[in-house]
Design a protein around this nucleic acid. Sequence first.
DNA 1: AGGATTTGACCGAT
DNA 2: ATCGGTCAAATCCT
Length: 308
Amino acid sequence: MTMDTPAAVVLELMTMGQQSAKHLGDLLRASSPASPHQELAAEILRCCSRVIDTLRAADSGRKRKAPEISYHQEAAPPAAAVWSPPPPPGPPPKRRARGAEAVKEVTSGTTTVDGFIWRKYGQKEINGHKHPRLYYRCAHKQQQGCNATRRVQRTQDHPAAYEIAYYGEHTCRGASAAACHPPPPAVVDFGSTSWGSASAGAGGGSPSPAASVSQSQGGGWSSPSASASPSSEIGFELEAHGPWEWRDAAAVEELIGAAAVEELIGAAPCYGSGAVTEFLNGSFGWESVLNDPLDFAGLHHHIATTFQ
DNA sequence: AGGATTTGACCGAT
DNA sequence: ATCGGTCAAATCCT
């Protein structure tokens, strides 16, 4: 891997972060051996290590593991989540079997931004659940016959968290991916560690009560002001084969997670070798990259920041 | 007016 | 028989 790829940039940054976290842990241990903050430093270290491991694994061409749920709020979220395998050949069943395999994620965020435009088509009270389950399908089902759907269920124990199950493949993302995907995020303000972007709100009635960026009707996108105030909450989502979302400042390390890494690898635009330095001083040219539909046509990459 | 969402009904899976 | 996923008419919103 070379520094020519975003993955390489991420790897180097994460390695630096890993060293910093280790240093922080040492400092905390030295100043206060019983400090509970050491665990925090250790957690950061673990996150960095996971990202690095994943990056290297991805670089060696390893495939992702079987589907699993990613818990954004949990202390030890799994490193990866994937789409369900492609449906078997033949006409798709009109109704999927109960408990059919799905890609699930639990997000603590108020927004559910995954780079796709979803249209709500149903809502149902579910036994044993206080909150109704919401049903969405890809907005491009009509034009492109995309069969991807998702189910959003507010979790019982964490009302602010949503469990989202994804079914089916986005057939609209192939040759006409650009038509399916919203334009890439417009603003990235790395200089203040706030990552700006368009937030989907998915247009389809996603549970996005606090979405800070609106999506204009018809799939158009508007962007947050570049001068928006910095945020302590960072939302970042990348989508390779499934949706990802991190919306917790404490999970910034998770932010550059496995999906991000694979995403960046998939993107593989060429960056200069000084990218890390540029990143750190806030001058890294992400914005132009993110605004270049050519780089993102085949990608499902979304970066979101909620300004508070 | 056209598109998006809501909501009751329908129907297949269990 | 019940549950849950989808349909589609009604309604809302821009």
